[in-house]
Design a binder for these strands. Sequence first.
DNA 1: CACTTATCTGGAAACGTTTCCACACATGGT
DNA 2: ACCATGTGTGGAAACGTTTCCAGATAAGTG
Lengths: 339, 339
Amino acid sequence: MKIAKTTIKDVAEKAQVSISTVSRVINNSGYVNAETKHKVMEAIRELDFEPNPLAKGLGGGKSNTIGLILPDITNLFFPSIARGVEDAATVQGYTVILGNTDNVAANEESYLNVLERKSVDGIIIAGSSSDGSRIQELTTSGLPVVLVDRTFPSLTIDSVTSDNLEGAYLAVKHLVTLGHEKILFLGGGTNISTTQEREQGYLKALRESGIPINRNLIHYGDYRFESGFDRLIEVLEKGLPFTAVFAANDLIAIGAIRAIQSRNLHVPQDFSVVGFDDIFWAKLERPPLTTVAQPIYRMGMIACELLLDKIKLPSQQEPRHIVLKPDLVLRQSTAALSL
Amino acid sequence: MKIAKTTIKDVAEKAQVSISTVSRVINNSGYVNAETKHKVMEAIRELDFEPNPLAKGLGGGKSNTIGLILPDITNLFFPSIARGVEDAATVQGYTVILGNTDNVAANEESYLNVLERKSVDGIIIAGSSSDGSRIQELTTSGLPVVLVDRTFPSLTIDSVTSDNLEGAYLAVKHLVTLGHEKILFLGGGTNISTTQEREQGYLKALRESGIPINRNLIHYGDYRFESGFDRLIEVLEKGLPFTAVFAANDLIAIGAIRAIQSRNLHVPQDFSVVGFDDIFWAKLERPPLTTVAQPIYRMGMIACELLLDKIKLPSQQEPRHIVLKPDLVLRQSTAALSL
DNA sequence: CACTTATCTGGAAACGTTTCCACACATGGT
DNA sequence: ACCATGTGTGGAAACGTTTCCAGATAAGTG
């Protein structure tokens, strides 16, 4: 029933050499005579031999597998990261194990444990609500980790992110240039670095423009459509005056637009709205959404390449922090403030 | 540097029993005295022991890992499947390796090979363009496989799908009931089972209603927005008369709506449009899209449960084909044909 | 009471690799 | 001629489990 896999032993016999020699050929390690090497390669080819990764992993070696931990693959933004990671991994012969945490710290921790036990060679993680202490633990214990999209300020670990502060600054500055002063900030979860950094960018743009900061205009929720919709309705009902919205991601922004429209108000005539991410649906929204574009797929790729570098050369070098430049994409959801 | 993991041996020493006994306790196999069992459990708890899955896999056992092969995780429909699979897997202590094929047969094949070598315990696959012979090979060689969403008619392998024919039938019947007769069919790739089955449903509904079938109204492309948009523009430019569109998925349907609107025509006043899938954005479209809802997440879960069943009881039983019932969701993209 | 059968346990082989160690043989410098 | 060094190879331990086999004891059967 079960296919009899050819093992290193078969190859050794066929090539008339020892198992050790075959192993050396496979791993390109130690000394092997060119002729012997050729003989072994030949045998490998003929027998169609593929080393068993499990056994490889056991013998103190590597599993050629990395873990990818995301909040929720269902959430529009993350598939692109996942795709970037996987594509980069495949090129180098690595395979990706996926885990969703739903932003629940306990899930994150349990996944971290599973992956450690599975002997993955490294982990890429878009951190959820935990404080990241477990992550630090892992890296110091020798397991390479790189943070993607979301960071933990306290951790000294490789990371790949966008310049969230700069992106937000650009967005809000744009609104200010259009004459807006009462600008609503709609954030995601407060414990997520991207929300914090984008809020900082928002504050910086206002301060720099001499606009007083009104804490009543700063609201949080999560990174989903419903959050944007609900927050905006609340603000509308409280009667807080504002003329523009800067949302911490596109889903929130689109939720906000729909909320505004549900009250028979108009974007951008009554309110200007800017998002963040530039997901596929941003340009399809009506009006098409002005937003800050991040190279999401590239973030995934770069994170993976960083990780693979670390795996291959575990020289304890300084952690690297790659920060990608975001771009403001002007579309039709923003307009000059009408007097 | 490296954390010294506790092994089964440590547990055995601590509990004053043999390694074999510990193994039996862990796997709930063979005879173990209740008292001994308790002692071992205690030791396991105290030492915080977790069996090493690699070693487990080596000892002729299982890797507790399954492979999931999808066309493209970036394509809106598949994240839900992935999520369903992962959630079901996690519950039972399994872990998921993800692979994207971009509908390229060669990629699919190479992933199949990688997964086989990785000694995954089973594979779930939404087949790409290949004919599936490699898949058949795998199953007959003893590796459990279940097909999800897309099937290969020639293969006798477990599968989980929607009743695509029925769903399409419902959708088109609905259009017919509204008075439409010239109904455009916009399919995905012709070699994909879902396109074929949905086309069958379309044809059945027309036949049953005594409406002659016009091959000029049947078009294919792929399952993306752009495909729907482009096909519809083409049809419009050819001047083919039609009053309604049945699209093989929501992305195509939304593309079609946008194409119609780009020519200053209106949905549903000028054309009715029905989609398939009921993705998140369907209800946000303007007008909200009438579509055939599939339980995508559940399809993933069920596929995974089926697979895990097979893994646990490899009794060579008849392949099971689970077909889920789709539901027509009426929204505002369809209206009675105005005379 | 002798004999099967069920319950319980430990020893050791096996899984497929990597890696450490030891040995053999050249080579070249003194 | 001698020794350090570089090159090439095989044997065997180690990785952490599962599983098979053989004993040992207890319990039931005629």
